[in-house]
Amino acid sequence: MTTTSGPLATRRLILQGAASVALLGLGNLPFAPAHAAANDKYPEEAFKQKNEADAIKALYGRNAEPSNKVKLDAPEIAENGGVVPVSVTTTLDKVSSISFFVTENPFALAASYKIAEGTIPGVANRLKMAKTTKLVAIVEADGKLYSATKEVKVTVGGCGG
């Protein structure tokens, strides 16, 4: 019996370790979704959401409707998923924010821009894409959300080393 207590004790220790890790994981769960789009704080919770719907909910707290007034420009085929040039312009009035969601990425929300009064509602930037994905741009205008969607084929993913 004494010979088997060694490995057993080790196994128990490992299990305890796993349990405490699980507890730590729980501690990081979002407590309350912060609708940070309206203020200046960094929307930490929205950036932690894995899928697009949850990220939109965490960022804005409501749904977007597709609109042809939002123009999303992205390449149809991106050779390098690490650097994909993406831009949005819109003819909508009273735009207060523009956000980009890459649905197949580990975390859907890529970037969110606050547009002040007097700033032209449009932005160009470069994003990473893990694989071929749907790209969604959301424009917040006069309190409503409008979206545009585009499929981007990625030949080399942007997450590998």
Binding site: D40, Y42, N105, A111, R126, L127, K128
Partner: peptide, 9 residues
């Protein structure tokens, strides 16, 4: 103001 996540290049 830009809020960025890890998916920005």
């Amino acid at each position: 103001v830009a809020d960025w996540g890890t998916a920005v290049s």
